[in-house]
Computed example of a mutant assay.
Amino acid sequence: MTDEPRLSAQEMIERLAPTLSRATRIRAVTALLAGVAGVVFVGTLWWSEPGPLPGRTHVAFGLFTVICLAWAAYGGWLLTRKVALFATDRVVAAWIGLVASLATTAAVVFVAAQRGAGVGLPLGAGLLIVAVASALVVRSHARRAALLRRLRELTGRDER
């Protein structure tokens, strides 16, 4: 017998598996680059607009900048993870998508109402996108719960 400490099943899995799969790394880099590119694009557009802008335009530019920053932060966070995430990354991404779709829908409907245009089409399209984002949130939570149940079955531990 050796004097080495025994490893749990989870510790063995973590040592054998890469920290992130290739697909997860690609998703992380894509989110990071798209978020940074969005911040640069929106920030440049916002900064270069001539003359004083209406308050709602500043709010819209700020909203889009925050959404892009959230995606960039998500990509950076995901790239720095060194442990198994058990689908936490998908839960976070789904919530970012839901919040972004709700905020964008509200902004578009508000602008349409202010201009006197019909709000039916923007509201309908926005609600469709919000419904898809909501379904992704539910699906990501269900997948994470299934993975955690499986982990408990295999190791007797709970990773939260």
Rank of each mutant, 00 (worst) to 15 (best):
G43E: 00
P50N: 05
A28N: 07
S8K: 04
Y74H: 13
A103F: 01
L151D: 08
A146C: 06
R81Y: 01
L16G: 11
V137A: 08
A84V: 15
R150I: 01
R144M: 14
W77I: 08
L79D: 03
F61V: 08
A107K: 07
V39C: 09
R90W: 00
G118Y: 04
R115D: 13
W71D: 15
V130S: 01
A17H: 05
R22E: 08
S48E: 10
A145C: 08
T44M: 12
V36R: 05
R115Q: 11
L136V: 13
E4Q: 10
A87G: 02
R25M: 14
R25L: 13
E14T: 12
G118N: 07
E4H: 06
L121F: 04
G118P: 04
T104F: 00
R81C: 06
V132P: 06
R6D: 13
R144D: 10
R15V: 03
F41C: 09
A146E: 07
V137P: 01
A106C: 06
R160Y: 08
W46D: 15
V92Q: 10
R150V: 08
I96N: 03
R56Y: 15
A146D: 07
R56W: 15
A103V: 14
A72D: 02
G38P: 08
E159I: 13
L63K: 02
L32P: 04
G97E: 09
I96L: 13
Q114G: 15
S48G: 08
G76F: 00
L45E: 09
A133H: 04
F64G: 14
T44C: 11
R56Q: 14
V137M: 08
P50A: 03
T19F: 06
L121V: 15
T104Q: 04
S134A: 15
V42K: 05
A9F: 11
Q10S: 12
G126F: 02
Q10I: 14
T80S: 09
G35V: 05
W71M: 11
V132L: 15
P122C: 01
G43A: 09
A23S: 10
W47Q: 14
D158P: 00
A34K: 04
F86V: 01
W71L: 15
T104S: 12
V66R: 00
V99T: 12
I26T: 07
R157P: 06
R81K: 11
R152W: 06
E14W: 06
T19E: 11
S8T: 15
P50V: 02
M12V: 00
A133G: 10
D89Y: 07
A103E: 09
R139S: 11
V29L: 13
